[in-house]
Nucleic acid binder design. Structure first.
Lengths: 227, 227
DNA sequence: GGGTTTACTTAACAATTTAATAACCTAATG
DNA sequence: CATTAGGTTATTAAATTGTTAAGTAAACCC
């Protein structure tokens, strides 16, 4: 499952800047579009709803502050990241830009690499937690789905397949209550028919093996991981 | 609807820096805690689970990079913002910090105002993510249906299923009066037949467990949530 | 392949938690 | 001050989960 590339709009009146940033962002896999002034930035933003907009502050027609303020007043761009770029490195502009709703403020001269890693950091933060198979690490408990390994305080615990899958499901969304139905369909699949007691028994075995109380029963509802 | 103050942990080995940042953040309404080295930072982070951690890179025991890496490997701190502070303004450190999972990177000399507005921008951005679902947050009372969790002043209260559902129903439309019929059909369903006394008993249990008077009786009409 | 081990499921029962009701008490209302 | 709705408590019933043991199927290993 591959996601569509993230769209980034660059608004700057200096062609050189656009070109160099554009080059680096494209190379990094973003879908890049450009604007040469504030008005064009707003037009293109409406047209393409980019995921992120880089706004130079000093632009013709409408400056970056104005564009930022406009976008922020529009619910359509709630989730759009705004990064302000500027040669003015004064504190007041910096604060003003953030207060108008900017997500980041980068002073020129801009290092493309730094800009890229800042944008990545912002995207990483707002990206909904992807459901990829990843190692779960909660306090001293490590659950590695690639190796089917569970360790607590560096001691390895051998969980059976179903036990492991159940634990992993719950721990992946720690705190959230899983209904028995959800557990059944996630761990056992929708066509397999097993009784409710089966879940209990597996929960019991996990609790017994790990020796810690990490799965909480929510009576009448389901189970949740809580540690 | 007032939320609990956001917790920020400042980790720096220079007392002057701690003091000045601490002063500004406290004044801005944050709940500030401090650490003098990397190990202390990790300890306090585990203890208090702050919403944001400011990490100086050059610290004794464990440097900011190490602390950042450690925190990011631990699911407990998934949602914790990490801001790296440093005197080193080189590009490599900057990128390294962000790649290790830092959310922002601020070079010294730090302007407290700029730092504050950057932190605010970060919080503003993640706020909708964390509080978007159906979590009810009234003053110091939090009711999270996904977790079947009720907390008052950060203390967890265990409500039974019906109690929770009743409380959630009322709190979801705080202030509005619910007729007994409405409550019955929403919480118990239309086909179940239970007496009026049953509602009373559940209301009583909620009031007793939470220890606060958050459900008001409207005699002859019904109940409303009022807190 | 025969024997052994391991994991999974189920059934039966125990333990616990939760829900509902009755009966009585209290407070509000007119 | 009588009436009535709601509060309280205790008791009982019901629902839900925990536990153990045993049966079955699959995997493993000479």
């Amino acid at each position: 499952m591959e996601a569509a590339p993230l769209k980034i709009l660059i608004a700057d009146d200096e062609p050189d800047i656009i070109e160099i940033i554009s080059f680096h962002l494209t190379k990094a896999g973003f879908n890049v579009m450009t604007a040469r002034d504030g008005s064009e930035a707003i037009e293109k933003a409406k047209l393409f709803t980019p995921d992120c907009i880089l706004l130079d502050i000093m632009m013709p027609k409408r400056n970056g502050f104005e564009v930022c303020e406009y976008l922020r007043s529009n619910k359509q761009f709630d989730k759009t990241l705004i990064v302000l770029l500027t040669a003015m490195n004064d504190e007041a502009s910096h604060i003003k830009g953030l207060e108008l709703g900017g997500d980041d403020f980068v002073s020129k001269p801009i290092s493309p690499k730094v800009l890229l890693s800042r944008i990545s950091a912002l995207f990483r933060r707002i990206q909904p937690t992807s459901g990829e198979s990843k190692i779960i690490n909660i306090k001293d408990l490590v659950i590695d789905p690639a190796q089917y390994r569970t360790t607590l305080k560096d001691i390895n615990f051998v969980l059976a397949k179903k036990e492991f899958e159940l634990l992993y499901l719950l721990a992946a969304q720690s705190g959230r209550v899983f209904l028995r139905n959800e557990i059944l369909s996630q761990v056992w699949g929708n066509d397999v028919i097993v009784g409710d007691r089966t879940i209990d028994v597996h929960v019991r075995k996990i609790r017994a093996k790990l020796g810690i109380d990490c799965i909480t029963t929510v009576k009448g509802v389901g189970y949740k991981f809580d540690y």
